[in-house]
Structure formats: C-alpha cells, structure tokens
Design a protein around this nucleic acid. Sequence first.
DNA 1: AAGCTATATAGCCTGCGGGTTATGAACGGT
DNA 2: ACCGTTCATAACCCGCAGGCTATATAGCTT
Lengths: 118, 118
Amino acid sequence: MSTSGTRQAAAARLDATFAALADPTRRAILAKLASGEATVMELAAPFDLSQPAISKHLKVLERAGLISRGRDAQRRPCRLEGASLAEVTEWLERYRQFWDESFARLDDVLRDLKTEGE
Amino acid sequence: MSTSGTRQAAAARLDATFAALADPTRRAILAKLASGEATVMELAAPFDLSQPAISKHLKVLERAGLISRGRDAQRRPCRLEGASLAEVTEWLERYRQFWDESFARLDDVLRDLKTEGE
DNA sequence: AAGCTATATAGCCTGCGGGTTATGAACGGT
DNA sequence: ACCGTTCATAACCCGCAGGCTATATAGCTT
C-alpha cells in the first residue's frame, strides 16, 4: 500500500515534491527549517533574493507538502513537514538494492584508499 | 563527508537528480529499468510519446547519473545506476527524524483504522 | 488614526523544459 | 550494395518556473 490516495495522485505528489527539491534555494530553506521554525524574513536573510522570490519558494514548498505555516501576528512561521519526505523515502525503497550497491562500492573505494595510505 | 566533489558540485548534482525524478515518464522508465536493462524502443513502448521525446528523457536521466548506456549493435541498452539515488538517500538522511515521525503517525492511523474495524 | 513591519499578490520578462516533425547517422541483414 | 531498424540531432513551439518591481493586505505600535 502507498501512503495515501490513488496511484496517479501519488505520482502527482511525487512530481511536486521532487520538483520542489530540485532547487538549491529551497533545499537550503529546508535545511534551515530542520533546526526549527522560522519566519519568512529569517529564511530570506541568507539569500540575495527579493522577498517575493522567497515567498514564491515557500509557496512551492507548501504546495508540495514539505512545509506548513502558522500565524504569529503578522509573521507566518514555517515548519518542516515530514510526510512528503516520507513519500520520497518510500519511493526510494523500491531502488534500495541499487543504491545499496553504490554505497558498497563507495565503501570499497574508501577502504582501498585507506589501505594504499598504509 | 559527501559522496564526492565539492559542496556546490554536490548541490548541482542534486539539482539534476531531483529535476530528473520530477517527471512521471522518467520515473516510469526507472521503474522498468529496475528489472533489468532495456533498449530505447522497449522503454518507449508503453508511452504515447515520440521516440525523440524518449531519447530526450534518457539524456536527462543520463546527465543526472541515474542511468548509463552500453552498445549492442544499433541498440543503446540502458542500465539503472544507483550512485545518484545513493546521493539522494544520503541527503534524505539529514531529515530522517522528520520522516520517521511521519511514518510513526502513519502507523498510528493504520492501527486506529484496524482497531475500529474490530 | 497613522504609520511601521511582515507578508502576499499582481504584472512583467526571460529562460528552459518537454513536446513535436523532419532528418541524419550507425549498424545488421539479405 | 541496399534497405530496414534503431537511435540521435536539429529546429521549432508553447507553457511554466523563477526572477524582478510595485502594490496591496494584515496586524502591531503609538
């Protein structure tokens, strides 16, 4: 079973989620939110972007279910939501054997490098 | 440490990988490749798309490192490559606590539903 | 009530993604 | 040698993503 909804709805959600994650600004926003809630201003600070640009990014993240937003007077604090990331994880599981192999090969490389150094 | 390369190179690779995964046609291609190599014709068959469209998708997947291609006469068999998926997995790890929580909540929901049914 | 702060919306521009058709190139079969 | 098959490339179109500025909205503060 999938997390919820029909197959095509799940596909549409994955579309939105992967597309949202395909932007370094948005990933940086998520990284910051991983250490707690933040307002739009706080999230915008590190970037050389206009405030509306950040608001657009946040809207993309929200529509992808990656964040949710509260209210604190005129602030709209953002919080990271795990559900979409869970869906991505679930999707990835199907390919576990492939990236397991990759990790294994990586381990080999690292071990070899270490051995060479001795 | 990251899988390889500088931070911004890693970010660029994630950009390409997530963007590649943000398309249902391309995810379907990967799904088929999960059960073994396939030629362009074989991959194109299920879709109502022109052959060049599929070639474009394959190019996107290749540039994202998600597939590699061999040679068999005039065929260019495609094979799934796990390295990029491993990088995605690695990236996701940072947010594990969040999707773990989501999975936990999902489990709760499922358990509740089951209990109701008794 | 007026004004400042925080955020959203509208309108615009530009580039790129994803589709198409037409054509080219590589290789095998006969 | 020729033809058919497989795949790639070129040239084009359209829509949308992501940036901007300007403006509107919401809610404190005084």
